[in-house]
Simulated assay, not measured.
Amino acid sequence: MLLEVKNVVKTFGEKRVLEGISLQVKSGAALGLLGRNGAGKTTTIRIVMGVFPADSGEILLDGKPMSKSGATFGYLPEERGLYPKKLIGDQLVYLARLRGLTRADAVAAVKRWLARMGMEEVYAKKLDTLSKGNQQKIQLASTLLHDPDIVILDEPFSGLDPVNASLLKDVVRELVAAGKTVIFSSHQMGYVEEFCDNIAILNGGRIVLDGNLHDIKMSYPRNRILVSLDKGDMAASIKTALSQAGLDSLVTKLIPREHDVILTLADPAKRGQVLAALSGAGLAVDRFEVLTPTLEQIFVEKAGETA
């Protein structure tokens, strides 16, 4: 299944929120939809779901208009929407029935998802008796009760402790493995890097970067090397080894840190010579790797200024 956003424009009053954006999401993979507050992420999501129309452009699923596809959505919004004073089981069954399940299937789905979240005992409890993290797990269950084709998760890890975050990670992996189309929006870049093969960064209503995350990282200069030795004054040892090998001019910058050293090379193709020089000098090299930018660094570079 291929979800396509093609040349979508959206204006509210005199404010042009989306400037002809285009992106693709394939089933069985997760897209990280990123942007600063006000960049247009939520507007994009709502247009994809048909909450309101675009001024122009198309939303297609396998080449057909989304409105005619029959695809179902599961949406976990950043602003949570369950009723704090209602019994959890009752409102989840109600939501499942709104999405087309029979009562028997709705009850079964609710019990199945509560069990998956390790929360079978809360069926007859009120939502406001739970911790913020456990309320978030109930919200996720409500998103997935009807086995949706397209899953959109907006800040899904908000309020989760490490144990519950690990559970949610497993659920997201299961969705991707099951061939769901997953759109993942978060300001927590570590989670996006963990789950998303592809990213799209919005800035000022435009897509300023999109594509495969690995390929994007590999497109950056590969001239920064992280080196760690097993002991001793690493910076001094590395400088001596490079000097003995006649490679002083190859290293344009050397930054010592607490547990390693970062080298910037004039020619990244010669990094093998650096490693050979260190080994030749009898240094025990624990780590020697090319430093690629983190997603957070890429995001700041591309979205740090408002267009």
Rank of each mutant, 00 (worst) to 15 (best):
M1W: 09
M1D: 01
N7K: 12
V9A: 00
K10V: 10
K10Q: 05
T11Q: 07
K26G: 07
G28Y: 04
G32D: 04
A39G: 03
G40M: 10
S56L: 09
S56K: 14
D62N: 13
G63F: 02
P65M: 12
F73Q: 08
F73L: 10
Y75E: 09
Y75C: 09
R80K: 15
Y83W: 15
P84H: 11
L87I: 14
V93M: 11
L95S: 04
R99G: 09
V110Y: 02
R112C: 05
R112V: 03
L114S: 11
M119I: 12
E121M: 00
D128E: 14
T143M: 13
I150S: 01
I152T: 03
L160T: 05
V172Y: 08
V172G: 06
R173G: 02
E174P: 06
T181Q: 08
T181I: 15
I183C: 00
Q188M: 07
G190C: 08
G205A: 13
I216P: 00
P221S: 07
N223K: 06
L226I: 11
M234F: 04
I238A: 11
A245S: 13
E258K: 14
T264C: 02
Q273W: 11
V274D: 02
A281C: 08
A284E: 14
L291P: 01
P293R: 09
A303E: 01
